[in-house]
Design a protein around this nucleic acid. Sequence first.
RNA 1: GUGCCUGUAGCUCAACGGCAGAGCGCCACACUGUGGAUGUGGAUGUUGUGGGUUCGAAACCCAUCAGGCACCCCA
Length: 425
Amino acid sequence: MKNLIQPIKGTREFYPEQMALRNFIYEKVRAVSQAFGYQEWDGPYIESIDLYAAKSGEELVKKQSFVFEDRGGDLVALRPELTPSLARMIAARQNELTFPLRWWSFGPFWRYEQPQKGRSREFFQWNIDLLGVDSPEADAELIAVAAAFLRSVGLDPRRTAVFVNNRRLMDAQFDALDIPHEKRLEISNLIDRRSKMDSAKWDANALELGLNEKQLDAMKNVLGDYDLWKKNEELVRLFAALEALGVKEYVQFDPNIMRGLLYYTGTVFEAFEISGSLKRAILGGGRYDNLLADVGGQPLPAVGFAMGDVVIGIILQESGLVPEFHPSPASVLVTVFDESMLAKSYALSSTLRRAGVNVMVYPEPARLQKQFKFADKMKLRIAITIGPDEAEKGQVAVKDLKSGAQQIVPEDAAVEFVGHLLESQ
RNA sequence: GUGCCUGUAGCUCAACGGCAGAGCGCCACACUGUGGAUGUGGAUGUUGUGGGUUCGAAACCCAUCAGGCACCCCA
């Protein structure tokens, strides 16, 4: 045991129970995506480093990507995000695709980070994007998709919320405060961290970045003004659309949401658990209208978001929202009484399978006690035994493991009897 | 890359300089044609690794590896 080679730091091992959670998230993601008419797609898992160097932030490419040299000497990266692949694939077929385009994807990504709660180096991410429409209503649709997902997994508005802001609105505030353009990125990053820092320290940092006292006070007024959205026509329309879409109770305006990524141009949003142990975004996204042109395509407006599987997985578990784990997909165990009964047991299992029942056969003769214990641990519904007594009369013993009742039925009636038992939940 | 914390049985942990233990789980039996409950018994460890201090180290010191948490960044 001590000599096991350890898995690579930050990678994920999905034992059946974790796999069930991953599949649960995937199923919910798919259902919501399809409910809004989005098409599933995927890109390559490895890409040339150049794809990211063109537009992703330096941090993401240089420090957070798994980069290596292939046998031809080219630098390739395990994809740290999907949007550049999306932009390229769309640009390559821009004249043949039918817009507006609604695409979603769920697949693995890699980032070289320090693993900690809510963060691993290998993770699955849901990406969903609407391309070709530039309107607050399109932004609202994506936020509605996010809210619909939260609702579908059982997270209600008391527990989770989507916080919305708008980059253009904030830029107008920066203009009004005479904050120079070259400082806005750092100040935005600082605003992003505001909820995690104590206020005195935050103030000190802001002054250090070059704000004067007057600007700092005015900035704090802006960041505390939760009615600021009423001054922005885009946000007024956005909230009207959210109300019509039936998700308004999930959404709040918050001027402190900035988001680090450089390419956002308008609406930005992030979903959080309101009172949980985790101060990490469940999902985040926004409008990015310049990206297609940046990678060499025709200009194309776009809005989308991404959700990692790690944070939502922790929240679902901590909230008790993960469905009960069923160790085995089978509902029936056919026991093996002894060597001479092996063939009969296999034959019965085959008959049941052809009738559409998921069936396991105990793989060797063993004490029935052991076999029933196994069936119990695997949470199977039914155990069937064919011993000498049954075999002699052409019968089988069917036991309902939930009620404990066992019934002897003719062999050729077994399929029907098992079917009834399984239907009776 | 920086800081703090933790590595003891399959799991959760105790022992904090003096014989390495408990609970859960596992296996067997009570009960050789039937699971969940109960009882009895049993197996499992180079105490992460390497070195040092000491009559004596799981414990103290150094190094190293691994993990967790936070910073950074972000899904």
